[in-house]
């Protein structure tokens, strides 16, 4: 952020303090370039979650293809995997809905 100079020095001090506070405040929902390596942002949680859901879908697809081509006869495990994949997908959709709601609520807040 550019250094903005303000006319009077006391106003400048207050402005600098506000800027520091803003930089160090926890950044919710926005990937911050100042985040420490050990902290995880909400966005990375979401990305990992989506990757997991995708992996479950792929595994379930592979198992159901094996049933169709006669490679495997493990019906109960295929059904369990299909259930897991479906439920995790539903959960992801709901998490997305809630995240969108939270985001729009934050955007509605008068600053």
């Amino acid at each position: 952020m550019d250094k903005i100079t303000i006319g009077s020095s006391s106003a400048q001090k207050i402005f600098d303090q506000l800027k520091d506070a803003q930089m160090n405040a926890p950044q919710i929902g926005m990937p911050s370039s100042k985040t420490e390596k050990s902290e995880k942002t909400f966005a990375s949680f979401l990305k990992e979650g989506i990757a997991e859901v995708n992996q479950l879908q792929k595994t379930s697809d592979k198992m159901s293809t094996d049933i169709a081509t006669g490679d495997s006869e493990n019906i109960h495990e295929t059904m369990l995997m299909a259930t897991k994949a479906g439920l995790s997908f539903n959960l992801m959709v709901q998490v997305r809905n809630k995240a969108l709601e939270a985001y729009s609520e934050i955007m509605r807040m008068p600053v």
Binding site: I75, H76, M79, L80, A82, T83, L87
Partner: peptide, 9 residues
């Protein structure tokens, strides 16, 4: 048993 397995979930 196989039919029941189809109803999982």
């Amino acid at each position: 048993m196989a039919m029941k397995a189809l109803e999982i979930g």
